[in-house]
Design a protein around this nucleic acid. Structure first.
Lengths: 126, 126
DNA sequence: TTACCTGCAAAGTCTTTGCACTCTT
DNA sequence: AAGAGTGCAAAGACTTTGCAGGTAA
């Protein structure tokens, strides 16, 4: 289970960290492949998953689309345009402890939650 | 744009309505194909999408998995087990007007929201 | 008759994975 | 060395779609 330093892993982490926004695995791949043409998509996926497992980055799986990865230190929510499918960060206070409002947990142990707002973005609304 | 009555459409609607829980497209297909072996997955998908477009059923796209369809008359949330991937209905009051808490809408016109709790279900926790 | 609908199969999107080789440690 | 990581390609899960024939109205 020991982890090793590899150029590929480092590149993946750098891309996610440097960008101040969420990115998809494909975007990460596209950015890295410019400078490091040999990297494979599989490696990008493997490292994104590994890095999110160990908490270096955060993975947010999105309904009906590609998962997002980001490096924001605070939790936040997302809004997805039902027309164009693009995803936006939403400025709203994080609902800490929302899990406690569930009436019957049925033995479920909650570890967190995501909220995805639905709507139509400015550009699609004109 | 006129819609027609077809056996396939009717079967799809019946399955979603009769079951008192959310179902995936695959589950719908599996149930129908027993009695009506000629139906195709494409038709099931087309009808599920059409029926949810016209509001007969509700579609909830799930992060990292198959979309769910249901016929519940009230909005509700879901919890997904991070181990087994199964999705459960959650008993919690619906947060009507949650969209109004967003501080900067950036021109986004909200139409609703989904909340997906994460955690480990009873069976995976033993 | 018309145009909506279907079955079929191919394709599209996103992601994982088996394999053999490579590189960190 | 050992075994974690990589590139490649295939496959897997879920969904959409082009096409030609079928069918409700």
């Amino acid at each position: 289970m020991n982890r090793r330093y590899t150029i590929q892993r480092s590149l993946v982490l750098d891309v996610v960290k440097e960008l101040r926004r969420h990115v998809t695995a494909d975007e990460v791949y596209d950015m890295i492949v410019k400078k490091h043409p040999d990297i494979s998509r599989g490696t990008v996926y493997r490292n994104l998953n590994l890095l999110s497992d160990i908490g270096e980055i955060r993975k947010v799986e999105m309904p009906g689309g590609a998962a997002l990865y980001d490096h924001l230190r605070h939790d936040h929510y997302h809004a997805k345009c039902v027309k164009c499918g693009r995803v936006f960060d939403v400025k709203m206070e994080f609902l800490t402890g929302l899990e406690n409002n569930v009436k019957d947990t049925q033995g479920f142990v909650f570890t967190g939650h995501d909220i995805i707002f639905k709507g139509i973005c400015r550009e699609c609304n004109t």
